[in-house]
Nucleic acid binder design. Structure first.
Length: 146
DNA sequence: GCCAACGTTGGC
DNA sequence: GCCAACGTTGGC
C-alpha cells in the first residue's frame, strides 16, 4: 500500500519549538502558519500522513518523523479564519539526522522544496524522496504506517 | 492591476 | 549580522 500515505516536511526553528520539546509534549498543534502555500499544504494533509520534522537556522537537519493525528481545523491562535492548524505526534526519531548538506548533495533529493524553495515552511515530499530520507536517517517505519 | 517599498525567512 | 529570495502591502 505504498500510495496510501502522503509525506510532508515541516520546518521549525529549534529555539521556537524543537523536536525534543515535541517528544516531551507527545503531540502538538502546528500553529502559526501565515503563508498561503504552506497553509494549502496543511489543508491537504490527511490523517495518518507522515511528516518529517526539520530544524531550520540552528541544526539544519531533519530530526524525526511525525504523524498527522487530526486534519486541518481553524488556527486557535488567531481570529483570522484564513489560517489552519493540524495536530501532529512524533513517531520516530532519526538514528542519523539528515542534514541540509546531505539533502543538497544527494542526487535524488535535489528537487525537494526544501532545496528549491527555502522559505516555504510546509511542503510535500514525494514517496521516492521519503524513502531516501528514511534510509539516510537510518530508520525503518512499521509497514502499517506506510 | 502594476510595481516600489517594506517585512520576513533562513542559509551562509 | 548580512543579504538574497520571496511574500505582502499600499499608492497610483
Amino acid at each position: 500500500m505504498k500510495n496510501k500515505t502522503s509525506f510532508w516536511l515541516v520546518k521549525q526553528e529549534p529555539s521556537k519549538y524543537s523536536w525534543e520539546t515535541f517528544l516531551l509534549d507527545g503531540e502538538t498543534l502546528w500553529d502559526g502558519v501565515r503563508n498561503y502555500q504552506a497553509r494549502n499544504n496543511l489543508q491537504s494533509m490527511k490523517k495518518n500522513d507522515l511528516v518529517f520534522f526539520y530544524h531550520s537556522v540552528t541544526g539544519k537537519e531533519i530530526k524525526g518523523v511525525a504523524q498527522v493525528i487530526r486534519e486541518a481545523y481553524p488556527d486557535p491562535t488567531t481570529d483570522d479564519a484564513r489560517w489552519v492548524v493540524v495536530d501532529l505526534k512524533p513517531i520516530s526519531t532519526m538514528k542519523n539526522c539528515v542534514s541540509l548538506e546531505d539533502i543538497k548533495s544527494h542526487k535524488d533529493l535535489q528537487d525537494t522544496a526544501l532545496v528549491k524553495q527555502s522559505r516555504l515552511s510546509v511542503m510535500p515530499i514525494t514517496y521516492k524522496e521519503s524513502q531516501v530520507i528514511l534510509k539516510l536517517g537510518g530508520i525503518r517505519l512499521q509497514a502499517n504506517l506506510l
